[in-house]
Write a protein that binds this DNA or RNA. Sequence first.
DNA 1: GCCAACGTTGGC
DNA 2: GCCAACGTTGGC
Length: 148
Amino acid sequence: MKSEPDVYSIDDLRRDGTTCWDGVRNYQARNFLRGMRVGDLALFYHSNAKPPGVAGVCRVVREAYPDPTAWDPSDGHYDPRSTPGRPLWDMVDVAFEEAFAAPVPLEALKAEPRLQGMVLLSGKAMRLSVQPVAKQHFDRIVRLGRAG
DNA sequence: GCCAACGTTGGC
DNA sequence: GCCAACGTTGGC
């Protein structure tokens, strides 16, 4: 799950404990959100950061439900096609799980042979703010992150 | 700021 | 259904 740290970082999540992952406005990303189950773990990725990379781990604590920011005209992600009666966009709630000793920079992910084939590194979904991660890739990144 | 790689929109 | 124009993402 990607977030720009200037907007919302892993440290913000540590402070808040949990947060609503709102603002997703891409159908494919939304569908991945809908596939999440309570207890699922997710990598928290800092995009548009210096450097970009995986900053930690969060955990799904509430499954997909309507994203109210979509029908708030004052919200930057307002989408008038979504209404309370017919919601178009969903969000999940996630809880802080851990912040890595040192974020794993994108450059390091690219350089790791065992991570080749990750959606994040290549393929159609690489730009999505919510995307799937294979378990072996997830585990490898967590190991790298904990090592610092 | 640039730009590649997408997705979305809307005319036809 | 096609496709041009436009918007977005996000690394660099």
